[in-house]
Write a protein that binds this DNA or RNA. Structure first.
Lengths: 122, 122
DNA sequence: ATAAACCCTGACATTAGTGTCAGAGTCAAG
DNA sequence: CTTGACTCTGACACTAATGTCAGGGTTTAT
């Protein structure tokens, strides 16, 4: 199939499919005229890529284990666990940061509301 | 004082101070030679800017109430509460997203560890 | 008066994936 | 053979604050 069909079957934009290829995540044959040609396994592969992207992994990280997970169960791929753990650490750091900011913000909102008590015309 | 001194007194880089000015958050007089000249109140102002930035507000949002909070108590500035609330909503959305991803990731890690039980050579 | 330290503007880079456009070639159906 | 739909590459845009560099002027201390 050509790239338009693959795009429709996977939900990935044509632009994204070309980008995945550029990042080494997706291979394509070329027709005589230079059109990309995909076989059916590409559909699964793209869905897999998009799933890992949705977990917050980067294309570079995904490229480290994609070939393995396309052939085996995830648990078989040793490369994946350290990446998961690192991503967890990043997530925890980010969530912690945002949660701290949130608490700060909540406190300021409360403080403003309290200060405006009694002088609130509405 | 000139920009280098303001930078040292506030912890903001010279680049950032120029950026704040470009965004309309900071004003400066100019000497005959074109050097920026600041008075002492600039120190407080820059610290205030940096504080709001650390709360996750953008320079554009800050510009909406900075003049007011430099002159009054925060609670007096009506512009600030809706911005705080919107930022809270954004934070909650972002935290929720990351938390969901984190749960997904944690589940996958657990699943991998379970699948590798008993066949784990280490 | 000269060197070192300071300041100026303008510009490009950074992140990471995606949107979008231009200009050109290809394919399919009529 | 023509038209419309498809595809190609390459490039710029985006977010937002900051780093950094180049090329040039200024101030200060010696």
């Amino acid at each position: 199939m050509r790239i338009g069909e693959l795009s429709q079957l996977t939900g990935a934009s044509i632009r994204s499919l070309r980008y995945y290829e550029q990042q080494g995540l997706l291979k394509s044959d070329r027709s005589d005229s230079g059109y990309r040609e995909y076989n059916l396994t590409a559909v699964e592969q793209v869905k897999t890529i998009r799933f890992y992207l949705s977990l917050g992994l980067t294309t570079e990280e995904i490229s480290g284990f994609l070939t393995c997970v396309m052939k085996n169960k995830e648990a078989f791929c040793q490369e994946i666990l350290p990446i998961y753990r690192q991503k967890m650490a990043e997530l925890d750091a980010q969530i912690g940061l945002l949660t701290g900011i949130r608490a700060n913000l909540a406190e300021r909102i409360t403080s403003i509301l309290e200060e405006n008590e009694g002088s609130d015309k509405s």
